Amino acid sequence: MNTEHQYIIGLLFILMFANCFSQSKTFTNPLLPSGADPYSTYYNGYYYYTHTLQDKLVLWKTKNLANIAAAESKIIWTPPEGTMYSKDIWAPEFHIIDNKWYVYFAADDGNNENHRMYVLENDNEDPFQGEWDFKGKVAAWPDRWAIDGNVFTYEDERYMIWSGWEGHTNGQQNIYIAKMKNPWTIEGKRVLISEPTYVWEKQGDLDDEENPPHVNVNEGPQYLEHNGEIFIVYSANGCWTDYYSLGLLSFKGEDILDPGSWIKHNKPIFKKSEENSVYAPGHNSFFKSPDDSEDWILYHANSRPGEGCGTRRSPRMQKIKWNEDGTPNLGTPVSAKTILEIPTLK
């Protein structure tokens, strides 16, 4: 091998290494071809990620959430047959509470009217190890249809927010909040803090402000705190429409269980971008970069109009900013061609 050949081979190795390094530091959306209702928990240097799979609970583990496609994964629970929670498992979330792992999810027996929220517990520090024990149904009074539970702590008290029906029929979905006695038990009555009121929350696929179709959905609530300000970001409209989007509630009172303490913003804060070929962005969660300096949104969306609530919803993420008034600025959903830097590492 002559010197010229050695130089060329060496250069190729350098280029290959540089390309791999570049790819490891940047990414493009979507993160996976499919995966609705994405959620992640950062713990001990790893992201633990999950999304809706309908018939089981799966957990992914990775140091780089942008590389979730190559992450280690494990089925941590498959429901027993013939129960009220055997089917239609939606929107799982993994939380660490009092040094134990909990996963909250909604499920039914094949009849959507029976959707309720449930929780599993694992006392092993590593959620890929240990046993996941079924703790039961998480229900408030009155016990009604419920999905999309999100748990948070405020002033040393634990609360759950979720989407539910007022009665026993599917008239509209509202956002409720309740205090928790422990990680698997709601204490007291549920409190209504948001229901669809604006056209953009019940628009359907017809851009007709005078005669909007009958779509009344508030769902997927997510607690968000920044510099002492408290927010709930929620999904509005039907997931089967291209107008699925994110709305914002701001906590402006003293009692978090007082409906009057929550102020709804009159416009969506995150919506479709036809220019970027992103449709029906919604059911999000939030996470911090490993160095704790950046705030990111994790959400699902479609790449084409009319793709609805099926398996074409794919997980995506992008960094968010903050407005001068303290509210979150989620920006515009970026296109699949946009090259983004990964969350800043420690």
Rank of each mutant, 00 (worst) to 15 (best):
S163H: 01
R190F: 02
I147L: 14
W162D: 09
N122T: 08
S194M: 13
D205V: 04
I147T: 06
R116T: 08
D143K: 02
G130Y: 13
Y159T: 06
P196N: 12
G188M: 13
D205S: 13
E195G: 11
E121P: 03
N211I: 00
P127S: 07
W162N: 10
S194Y: 04
E209C: 00
L192P: 08
R158M: 15
K181L: 15
E121H: 07
E201A: 10
D156K: 15
W184N: 06
K179W: 07
Q172E: 15
T169M: 10
K181V: 05
V151W: 01
V138Y: 06
P127D: 04
M160S: 07
E201H: 07
S194Q: 15
S163N: 03
I186L: 13
N174I: 06
S163D: 01
H115W: 11
W184C: 06
K137I: 14
Q129N: 10
G167S: 14
F128E: 02
E113N: 12
M180P: 06
D205T: 02
G171T: 15
E155P: 01
E210T: 10
K181M: 08
S194K: 15
N122E: 10
I161S: 08
W162S: 12
K189R: 14
E166L: 10
W141T: 08
D133W: 05
G164A: 11
E195K: 15
D133I: 15
A139C: 04
D205Y: 01
D133K: 15
S163F: 00
P142D: 06
D123F: 10
W132K: 01
Q129S: 13
P196D: 11
M160G: 09
Y154H: 15
E209N: 02
Y159K: 07
L120R: 12
Y198S: 03
N150G: 05
Y176E: 02
E121I: 08
K181C: 02
G130D: 12
I175S: 08
L206E: 14
W141Y: 01
H168Q: 12
R158L: 03
N182W: 01
E113R: 09
K137H: 02
G164H: 03
E121R: 14
I186T: 03
R158P: 01
E157G: 06
T153E: 14
N112A: 12
D148T: 02
T169Q: 13
E187S: 14
F152Q: 10
G204L: 12
V119D: 02
D143P: 00
G167Q: 12
E195P: 00
G188Q: 12
E113T: 08
G204W: 09
W132A: 03
N211R: 04
I186K: 05
W145T: 05
Q129H: 07
N150P: 01
K135N: 04
Q203I: 00
M117R: 00
R144Y: 01
D133L: 12
G204A: 07
Q129Y: 02
V151F: 05
T197W: 09
M117T: 14
D156Y: 08
K202I: 00
N114L: 09
E155F: 05
P142Q: 04
Y159C: 07
E155R: 14
I161P: 09
L206V: 14
G136T: 08
F128I: 03
W141L: 06
P196M: 11
D208E: 09
G136A: 10
G136K: 11
L206I: 13
G149P: 02
E195N: 07
D126I: 04
